[in-house]
Design a protein around this nucleic acid. Structure first.
Length: 422
RNA sequence: GUGGGUGUAGCUCAGGUGGUUAGAGCGUCUGGUUGUGGCCCAGAAGGUCGUGGGUUCAAGUCCCAUCACUCACCCCA
């Protein structure tokens, strides 16, 4: 029989690694709370239509990366490939807008995309993110960006780069699309096949093309930020102004276009050079039209999404220690059957004090148990045998000092309480 | 989907031009006192050399195929 293996592009997060995840998640939640965002959890799967409509039929995600299947009732379902559409769906379905005009939501969840795995890209991966629903003010955009950076700061990440752009609203884009097409058209046959395909449906993506000839020709392309109507222009200006007031450094990239169709006005990306080709740890922007697209009432919104695996890669590269610093306090070594039974009771009591405590479960020799205690970096080893039972006192070995002292049974709690404070 | 790289013990890796029982370090286990860790010493366990063919008297080593992993394109977090 061949051994079963995990699915390509997925990973087992082993104990040593998972302690880092827990630390990271806790830091994220702490900052989210300070910024007054609340968590919303949605199912891992949704109707396929939610993503088809929300993300856009022509995006790579919808066109070729979704895990879509039919359930036994013949319904088309999809494992969620991103979180914004589900959040908006839940927001509309549960009428959160009726309770409050403004909702600040965050999430942390596994997502699924059937891409070819590489560094920083998995088929099941994890994102956290935040969405501010109900405000069209630039302050909301700024808060979202500031929030993402505050989280990275809390984790201790360094040397991150923030890049921003504005892709305008619906009206701006119709106008700009024409301007751009007029610019490209004379040379269209020189562009790569992908770009030629994009020309009609989504010409803005051509600006993002990494093909050398394409990007050279794009050098003089008209920039959308320079062709915005007054309303969007004002929004973008306010955004930049407020970022400056907060002392948040940013770069403008007039060709930054996010891959999902729903973005309007503000788009941004945060990258790290510590990563490989997949260097974005955060992407986001404003998406004022999505709620309507999903059949709900118009709701201005802005948010970001950030990849947890990539964050962990950056942290690792920058030698940021996220491992659990907790230490095994007590290892109980029992000698003889009577002591063994007795030790079970003590172990439970010590654990109930709130201390991390352990006992040999492999019927090992005393020597092997001591080795085990040492390997687990225990602070104290409590020895319990016939002598100790008679004396009504533990022999306590202080592993760091190598000394051994007798502690009467009725003084043990006091001893451990005092010592564990040190 | 398309390219490049890699596949030898739990982990990290050695194994010129094919040739006796496939090695090292780390880790694991046991012992070096009858009830005691770390250091040191001694020993042990653990490998279908990714898989399947082929060439050869002989293949971990050469050829072909295949699979897996990995990096990159693409795309994105």
């Amino acid at each position: 029989m061949n051994q079963l293996r995990r699915i390509k592009g997925t990973q087992d997060i082993l104990p040593e690694e998972s302690s880092k995840w827990i630390t990271l998640e806790n830091k994220i939640r702490t900052v989210m709370k300070k910024y007054n965002f609340s968590e919303l959890r949605t199912p891992v799967f949704e109707q396929t239509e939610l993503f088809a409509r929300g993300i856009g039929q022509l995006t790579d995600i919808v066109a070729k990366e979704m895990y879509t299947f039919q359930d036994r009732g013949k319904k088309q379902l999809t494992l969620k490939p991103e979180m914004t559409a589900p959040i908006i769906r839940a927001y509309l379905e549960n009428k959160l807008y009726a309770q409050s005009q403004l909702n600040k939501i965050y999430y942390m969840a596994p997502l699924f995309r059937q891409e070819n795995p590489q560094a920083g890209r998995l088929r099941q991966f994890h994102q956290f993110g935040a969405e501010t629903l109900g405000s069209s003010a630039a302050e909301a955009d700024v808060e979202i960006i500031d929030l993402a950076l505050a989280i990275y700061d809390a984790i201790g990440l360094k040397d991150l780069k923030l890049v921003i752009n504005s892709v305008g609203d619906a009206e701006d884009r119709v106008r700009y699309k024409k301007i751009l097409q007029d610019f490209i058209k004379p040379n269209l046959n020189k562009y790569c096949p992908d770009c030629q395909r994009r020309f009609d449906e989504n010409p803005m993506r051509i600006l993002d093309c990494k093909n050398e000839t394409c990007s050279t020709m794009n050098k003089n392309a008209p920039k959308i930020a320079e062709h915005l109507l007054p309303k969007s222009k004002a929004h973008y200006k306010t955004l930049k102004n407020q970022l400056t007031i907060l002392g948040i450094p940013f770069k403008e990239n007039p060709y930054l276009v996010r891959g999902l169709d729903y973005y309007t006005r503000t788009v941004f990306e945060i990258t790290s050079d510590a990563l490989g080709a997949q260097n974005a740890i955060c992407g986001g922007g404003r998406y004022d039209l999505l709620a309507e697209e999903l059949g709900g009432q118009p709701t201005p919104a802005v948010g970001f999404a950030s990849g947890i695996e990539r964050l962990l890669m950056v942290a690792d590269k920058q030698n940021i220690n996220l491992s659990d610093s907790g230490r095994l306090q007590v290892f109980l070594v029992a000698m003889g059957d009577k002591a063994k039974n007795e030790s079970l009771v003590w172990l439970k009591k010590i654990r109930n004090m709130g201390l991390q405590a352990e006992l040999d479960l492999l019927s090992r020799s005393i020597k092997a148990q001591m080795r085990e205690a040492n390997r687990q970096n225990a602070r104290f080893v409590l020895l319990l045998g016939d002598d100790e039972l008679q004396k009504k006192a533990f022999s306590v070995k202080l592993m760091d000092q190598g000394e051994q002292v007798d502690i009467p049974f009725d003084e043990l709690f006091e001893f451990l309480t005092d010592k564990s404070k040190e």
